[in-house]
Design a protein around this nucleic acid. Sequence first.
DNA 1: TCGCATTTGTGCGTATGTATC
DNA 2: AGATACATACGCACAAATGCG
Lengths: 242, 242
Amino acid sequence: MDTPLPRDAGVAAWKQIADALEAGIAAGRPGPGERLPTEAQFAARFGVNRHTVRRALAALAERGLIRSAQGSGSFVEAAPLRYPIGARTRFSEIVSGAGREAYGDLIAATEVPAGAALAAALGIAAGAPVLEMLTRHRADGTPISMGRACLPLPRFAGIDRAYAEAGSLTRAYAAFGVTDYRRLETRITARPADAAEAALLELAPGRVVLVTESVNLDQHGVPIQATRSQFAADRVELVVTG
Amino acid sequence: MDTPLPRDAGVAAWKQIADALEAGIAAGRPGPGERLPTEAQFAARFGVNRHTVRRALAALAERGLIRSAQGSGSFVEAAPLRYPIGARTRFSEIVSGAGREAYGDLIAATEVPAGAALAAALGIAAGAPVLEMLTRHRADGTPISMGRACLPLPRFAGIDRAYAEAGSLTRAYAAFGVTDYRRLETRITARPADAAEAALLELAPGRVVLVTESVNLDQHGVPIQATRSQFAADRVELVVTG
DNA sequence: TCGCATTTGTGCGTATGTATC
DNA sequence: AGATACATACGCACAAATGCG
């Protein structure tokens, strides 16, 4: 053991270990995505039982700093993606601006009649057809968010195919004459992920999603999209400036 | 039973009940804070077993629409407080603007040396003294948020007493020559509440907190406060405009 | 302070229909 | 076709918390 723990300091051993590991991770040792030493190695280094190490690791895992995989090891989670929320929020720009590769999946697209709340948000008649698109967004392969976007339908018929090809909503809009769009306001809530969200976002059960709801307007101020997105709360940090 | 359920519709009975109750709550029957009929009454009304009713209620409780209390009944939760986040975020103004009564509790105030990150945020030397204030905020008696605010210390010595008297940070600042303050940026994350947070916010275990971190500047652009707040995610809706 | 009725929480067992292998 | 697993629904009993007289 290279760092014997003060056992009479009134601080639990697992807490001291957790703090030490957290400080190391904050300093980049090991860096994001890298593997931590095995539990047995930690036990030997700190001169404690492996159970004590496991408790420390569990504390870090619960806070989303690391992720433990049976048979594989414990890994440092990537630093949360800094995700600015504002009038010109664009997933692809944010992710590539962070030096990571953005990718958008189209999970499903169906035509449904608009409910009352949705119709009001889009400024259309209740029951009018909308295109409901289920999407998922990744940065460097890790799922960041998923969302349900509803677009008024006579206007954007077929945009699901354009989106599936382009992988970016901004580029798909361009093919439909939307040169620019902006967001009116964003409402943010949070709750535990349900089963479907956990599966799509590759989340451990019990993890949390940040839910954002917003309406986008085109360059003429016409509503073109009502969106509800779920972000893996461990993997992003929504940033509001101003 | 006054509304026999269609049992061969391919929709689970508990789901139909949950939808019916949700529609009623959305229409204000019963209204926020009011008690729902008992499980036995629902079971009789819909002609199902109490377990089936319980499943419907559990679905609503999980979404934060209702709250069940053993021995007491199930109650409709208040609609989430619309909480705008921006440069001029003020708890008391937001709450009173929503027609509810704002109240701030000072839980504790201690003098501690600033850590590296905190010192950088406040533009002071690492290890310099700061006043750490633990506060809790209520609207109409229900806890909305709690927070840890750190203020640089030679300047704001004694502000904890002013805050405890005034119940509002804005008013306490005024006594220290801060006529106006604004927020640079707010970082938002979310996670399950820990035991201390659940206790202070009167949350059921497993519920979620929205965590916001921000730095406030006074009218001259000098950092006067670094804050981390935890909001009961079921009781607020953070709103970003622009 | 005590006891009791009310109400939700929990556990057990049973039966049924529906996917899936 | 058979076996298995799973979600749904029902019935009964009791525990635990609350509110009230």
